[in-house]
Design a protein around this nucleic acid. Sequence first.
RNA 1: GACCUGGUAGCUCAGCUGGUAGAGCAUCUCCCUUUUAAGGAGAGGGUCCAGGGUUCGAACCCCUGCCAGGUCACCA
Length: 575
Amino acid sequence: MSLQLSEQEIVRREALDKMRALGINPYPAEKFDVNATTKEVLANFDKDKLNFQEVSIAGRMMSKRIMGKASFAEIQDSTGRMQVYIARDEICDGEDKMMYNDVFKKLVDIGDFVGLKGYVFVTQVGETSLYVNDFKVLSKSLRPLPIVKTDADGNVHDAFTDPELRYRQRYVDLIVNDGVKETFIKRNRIMNAMRKFFNDKGYLEVETPILQPIPGGAAARPFMTHHNALDIPLYLRVANELYLKRLIVGGFDGVYEFAKDFRNEGMDRTHNPEFTVMEIYVAYKDYHWMMDFTEKMLETASMAANGSTKATIGENEVEFKAPYARIPMLTAIKDHTGYDLNGKSEAEVREAALALGLEVDESMGKGKLIDEIFGEKCEHNYIQPTFITDYPVEMSPLCKKHRDDDSLTERFELFVNGKELANAYTELNDPIDQRERFEEQMKLSEKGDDEAMFIDQDFLRALEYGMPPTSGMGIGIDRLCMFLTNSPSIQDVLFFPQMRPEKFDAPIQKTLELNDNEKAIFDILKVRERIEISELKELAGLSGKGWDKGIKGLSKHGVAKVEKTEAGVFVGVIG
RNA sequence: GACCUGGUAGCUCAGCUGGUAGAGCAUCUCCCUUUUAAGGAGAGGGUCCAGGGUUCGAACCCCUGCCAGGUCACCA
């Protein structure tokens, strides 16, 4: 081990050894009984009632202010931080002042876990604090934490802000940055509220396969993997739609799943290769019903997150209170471009797209063109939650045709803050129509569309047994959390966003400037690691002088070592 | 994938037209029983992302690469 340790890391390792030398276990096994959190104490302490007189708290030491025989420190637990007062003669019995002078003052560092017992009081300056009379080391921290401070005016000093460090070392981000935990707690509250909303209606939470032989249910590029025992390719799911509908065929009235989906596509502020989607399917409903349902669900989620149906998203104030505007797609296009595409031919739609300055190509059919116009000219305008309804049939191969117009489908997407949040259908349950739609997807695939859907024969078989009229909806949980926590990047609502793997330094051959002789010898040693000296000399093929200089140089650099043993003289690499 | 910006001490950042590295906090030493981002005084700490090039001399200029962030494209 030739780890490059910083001065501060060395100091902490030395402190660890000194603790052990003093008979203090820096990593004790036994439990430490906690009977209060800092949050409870700060919220409920009343100096007239004299409550919290036998308090036991535990957490990380986050600051230390030593003033001779007494000190102030801050302890951070899962709920927050509070100040503690530690006086030498309180934590040390009799003459032995080791616990204060050595352990607390010198060997305990910022970031160490400690357990503290004592009573709560208010200092002269008016801060509720713990008067410590017992002090125990619970776990030593070997790396220095960034020290983030907030002054009386709320200004943050030395904030830990580098996004790369924050995402790669989320644990540090969570320790030192206020508000990070809150985002993830809200995420949990949002999902719990949705779950309760569904369960209260009697819908069943289910789990369906992530490893799928056919990645169906969405137009997206899948991740591929391989199962050894079956010797078949498997895909990570891009959606769970087709499996959930099979369950509706099977007789459930409502099923839902919070699912991780995987798409092998680009990454940016709103896309992570793995992401969470909630999909729900309810029998005997249509997309109008689903709009009512979605509104109420979001109202509930917003209340759970923020205690309000209003949410601030960047510059915008968004109102999640139902009902939301419902605008057919062609109306939206007419509103924002002036073109009425109702009943127009593909050629006419293409003309309109060109006139609007869009890039179009021959492979784009009418549906794709309409979608393109909407995406470019309309989408970003919908800041307040808005249902855009009735999409062209070509764009929606799993959606039932519109009851009044068979060039359209009974589909809606919900837009919030100019971005798509949810997608829903009156589900296609006509197995013959479904087979034709899949076949159209095949044609697209043959034309070169690499995300056209595969034909899922088993799914078609299931539909042939009969699926009740059903409405289904999918919502991006990460995006919803971004909105409800006002996070500008998906990375802020994922604990561990995908990053290029970090390279950890290989300790060997760093900072070393080897000359040619040294290099010739070292190249052999890298492979052999330990080798008899005369064999090494022969393999290196150097002149007598070159050999001599090379091997001495390597020893001096500390990368190789010559050892004389009973069995002969050996050269080994020093890791 | 294209373009823009950045990578300097544990953290946040300075570093001018190139002259061989600086601050605050953290760390270490000493002094001090109630201090509020910070008690006082002093000290140590750096492969300036990596590799090449230009130059008497490079953290700085040029080239290549790595990593990250942003914008766009692709994509729900």
